[in-house]
Design a protein around this nucleic acid. Structure first.
Lengths: 348, 348
DNA sequence: TTGTACGCGTTATCAT
DNA sequence: ATGATAACGCGTACAA
């Protein structure tokens, strides 16, 4: 008696739930066959396949991800570990991930690690308990070992670092080159005394950006001056404070390279408060090319970070991993976006 | 033979998976008892409860949300329909939702509707197929009827509109009052010719803000002038364009109230391009109090929108709904944040 | 109060 | 190539 399943369908208030079993009985085949067709697990006769495909369309059958997950199969969901869900920078990457994933029928599961290894570990537990098919980690504080270990049981794509491990693909941006570009831009405008507001030393990208700054100085035969190096924390307030500190120190400078746009905004505000005009008195370059950079006053010259593409590529790479292939995606090279916050060194 | 389950546990490579059945056998009770204790479904003897609780802790048992969902129970996940995952405004609300949900053991499932009713409907399908326990809708374009209908099968909390329906709770912000506050602030500074850059008429909040603007004008005995009303689209470029248009029209004005901060930023840039200083020549007020508002140049006077609290409250209200109680949360009243972009009308 | 047995919708492993 | 059957881990009537 296979009428048991169908009986449920016609029960009042059953709503629109169409199950795999229902399409099976609808076209007189076994559930296994339907499953096979859905997953391409085995070869089935063209006639049956056609009949089933039609039934699926007609009944509007949608596979139940929950049941799939339970049965040990795929859940069609991907865990995404971000740091803060409302980060102006990572937000764009999330959008890229979401778009690419949806296109291929997957759903992202966003969780926030808050720049905290312990919390990220908890995030991983959550994701595992939800049986995600793979995980994308946006930078974060997890150790390389932890990531490699995770990758042994689940395909993993990580951004913000370069790391080789089985089952893992890393997607890194050339922060060093970007910083060099930013600094060189200032140098080319005639600036010689260029300050740098660095990001937290715990962030590898901040370290790379600092290195790029120093490399550009060196390339141009300029001396690196510790007094022109300020420590920031990647947020506006720290950029503001850094400039206050710089101004207080009395060290002369005509250009500032901030390790990210948020600190550049803070820096601009500090300069404004002190009556210093950008770019007439001080030229300013940021890094990331946030959405707001184009509309700040003046519009911020910066290094474009392809966060959106990064999301797209990360998701794509994970799909490759899932398919058993080796991803080969690479991020585009950094690009300088020259806007109004930088200009030639004036006669002053 | 109950050894079947336990046998699987000791199988090589089984990893750390601890199941409900395992804790059951571990303390010599039936799985149902454990389940009951977990869900508080029925009363169990204190001894058993203690034993089970201890076993759960010792084995580190974590209920499998997938299995729970399949069995028809709760999945401990809440669907959140936002519009764009990287919106500077809604992002903050998402953070609030996430925080509150995590605190009580739930996980958010974010999906983006892109201001499109059809896409939002698809989002709902995805969320339902994933058996979420409830749904939070951040504004969006779904009709009130669609929402009410959804609420018949699932608890729903919706923000950005006022709507009464069984199983549904709405959390609305007083946009009208906020806009009135913003406009009045300008008026109190002596401004008489105040332009308004409105948001898309499809957004109810934009309509309310426009109404608030007109109400404030009326309160002060000021005439509403159609020529000072510009149509924007809630993004920077539209704010910029609106001011360009205003300037071209030649209509005199000394104050601008933009319906959101993003348009205010664009407006500020347009003024800057034309050599008009803020607030010396033109005072500018925004709406929302985005993260960047405090660090723009000059810092933007604006109406604080409690987006974070809104997220917190929305999640809390959904928990109430889930518990069968009637939520009563209300959003705080709008608050004016006076910063540098507004000042008394000069002698000019 | 507690245990048994079944079902949730799908995949995987055997048979055939 | 296809079908029957047994999991997957849990909730829940129903029975005891």
């Amino acid at each position: 008696m296979k009428s048991r399943r169908t009986a449920r369908k016609s029960s009042p208030g059953a709503g629109q739930k169409v199950t795999l079993g229902m399409v099976a009985t609808a076209c007189g085949v076994s559930p296994s066959t339907v499953s096979r067709i859905l997953n391409g697990t085995a070869v089935v006769s063209p006639e049956k396949r056609a009949a089933v495909d039609r039934a699926i369309a007609e009944l509007g059958f949608i596979p139940n991800p929950i049941a799939r997950g339970l049965a040990g199969g795929r859940t069609l969901s991907i865990g995404v570990i971000t740091q803060v869900i409302d980060s102006p920078f990572y937000g764009v990457a999330l959008r890229g991930i979401e778009e690419e994933l949806i296109k291929v029928g997957y759903s992202p599961l966003f969780v926030s690690g808050h720049w905290n290894a312990a919390e990220e570990a908890r995030c991983i537990d959550v994701l595992r308990s939800r049986h995600v098919d793979g995980i994308i980690v946006l930078t974060g504080r997890l150790s390389d070992e932890a990531l490699a270990s995770l990758a042994r049981s689940l395909p993993v794509v990580v951004t913000g670092r370069r790391l080789e491990a089985p089952g893992l693909y890393s997607l890194d941006f050339n922060n060093f080159e970007g910083a060099r570009l930013a600094t060189r831009h200032l140098i080319e405008q005639g600036h010689r005394r260029i300050a740098h507001i660095a990001g937290p030393t715990l962030h590898p990208d901040a370290v790379d950006r600092l290195a790029g700054y120093r490399a550009a100085l060196k390339d141009a035969g300029l001396r690196y001056e510790p007094g022109l190096l300020l420590q920031g924390a990647y947020h506006e307030a720290s950029g503001l404070q850094a400039v206050e500190q710089l101004l207080t120190s009395g060290k002369p400078f005509t250009g500032i390279f901030a390790a990210n746009d948020q600190m550049a905004f803070g820096a601009a505000l500090a300069l404004h408060r002190h009556g210093l005009r950008v770019p007439d008195d001080v030229s300013l370059v940021g890094f990331d090319d946030l959405q707001g950079a184009a509309h700040s006053i003046p519009p911020l010259s910066t290094i474009h970070h392809p966060a959106y593409e990064m999301g797209l590529l990360a998701a794509g790479a994970l799909m490759e991993l899932l398919a058993g292939r080796k991803p080969s995606a690479e991020l585009p090279e950094p690009r300088l976006i020259a806007r109004g916050s930088t200009g030639p060194l004036g006669p002053g």
